[in-house]
């Protein structure tokens, strides 16, 4: 799980162009949206693509994303349970 968490942090920084953020600065329980990393609606859509492209998870309802992308912990947990690749 720790490996997946680190992998996710790297991917998020890369995919969402968070140039000024380091992997070590993202806590596993930090909120990704709102005050946390300051992600916005396009970032949320981009994370939906990331789920599908890298882990083969297609959300039935994009609104599910809100709960899944709460933090690295929640995201990693969801991916490990639902991944198809």
């Amino acid at each position: 799980m720790a490996e997946l968490q680190e992998e996710l942090k790297e991917k998020i920084i890369e995919q969402l162009s968070l140039e000024d953020v380091e992997v070590s600065e993202i806590g596993n329980d930090d909120p990704l949206f709102g005050d946390g990393l300051g992600l916005d609606s396009i970032d949320a859509l981009e994370l939906i693509v990331l789920l599908e492209k890298d882990y083969g998870i297609k959300l039935k309802d994009p609104k599910e994303g809100k709960a899944i992308f709460e933090s690295i912990n929640v995201m990693a947990d969801y991916i490990s349970k639902n991944r198809t690749k």
């Binding site: 396009i42 859509l45 981009e46």
Partner: peptide, 9 residues
């Protein structure tokens, strides 16, 4: 086939 919203915008 993975169009990116962050590119499309």
């Amino acid at each position: 086939y993975f169009p990116s919203p962050a590119v499309f915008v």
